[in-house]
Write a protein that binds this DNA or RNA. Structure first.
Lengths: 100, 100
DNA sequence: TCATTAGTTTGATGCTTATCAAAATAGACT
DNA sequence: AGTCTATTTTGATAAGCATCAAACTAATGA
C-alpha cells in the first residue's frame, strides 16, 4: 500500500515550503490544520505542497469539520527509513532557511 | 566557507541520478573518477549532476591527470548534519530505485 | 437560508532543470 | 606533433513545477 519511494520522499522535503511544513508539524504538540501553518505562499499553493507531502507518504491528512488536519507519519517513516526523519528535523532546525 | 544549505543538500540528493552517484561513492573503497560511475545518462548530463552535488557540498572533486576524481564529504556532512548521510545511504540501499 | 470560514480545483504563467548533441579543452602516450 | 581518452562547455529543447488568482465546494453558525 505505502511502499515508500525514497527519492520521492527526498524530493518532497527538499522544497523549503514543504520542509517548513514538516518542521512546524514536528514541533507542534498535536496535529495541525492547514490554515494554522505559517507559510509565505497563497493557500492554493499550500494545498499543492500538502498534497505533495501526502503523496510521498510524509504526512497523513483527515478532515475535522471544515478543517483539514495534518499528521506527520513519524512511525511509518522511522520503520522504513530508520533515523532519517530525526536527522532531517534536527538538520532543518540548525540550518534554518526561513522558507524563502 | 562551506555553510551548508540544508534544502540545497536535500535537493542535490533527491535526484535519482545524483542519489546513485552518492550511493556508488559510499559503496566504493576509495574515490571514483567521473567515468567509473554506472549512470544511464550522457556524460555531459553527468557533469551537470556532479556539479550540482559539488555546489551543494556533498562531494569534493579534484583532478588526477585527465580524470576527475570524486570524494564523498562524509566527515563534513556528519559534522553539520549528524546522522543524515548515513540514514540516506541506508535508505537508498533499501528502496533501490535503479536511477530511472 | 444566508453568510462565513476553510480549503480545493482549475487555468495560466514563468522559472527551473534534466537531457542530449556537438564542439571545445586538456592531459597522456606514442 | 598528433592521437586517444576523459571531461566540460555551449546551445537548444522539453518537461516539470511553484506560484497566484478566481471560481468552486463544503461544513458551521447565525
Amino acid at each position: 500500500m505505502d511502499d515508500f519511494d525514497f527519492p520521492r520522499v527526498l524530493n518532497a522535503i527538499a522544497d523549503p515550503i514543504r520542509l517548513a511544513i514538516v518542521t512546524q508539524l514536528a514541533a507542534a504538540p498535536g496535529d495541525l490544520s492547514c490554515g494554522s501553518f505559517i507559510l509565505p505562499v497563497h493557500p492554493s499553493t499550500a494545498t499543492h505542497h500538502f498534497t505533495a507531502l501526502r503523496q510521498a507518504g510524509v504526512i497523513h491528512q483527515f478532515y475535522a469539520g471544515t478543517s483539514r488536519m495534518n499528521v506527520l507519519r513519524r512511525d511509518d517513516l522511522n520503520a522504513v527509513f530508520p533515523g532519517f526523519l530525526d536527522s532531517v528535523i534536527s538538520a532543518a532546525a540548525k540550518a534554518s532557511t526561513p522558507a524563502r
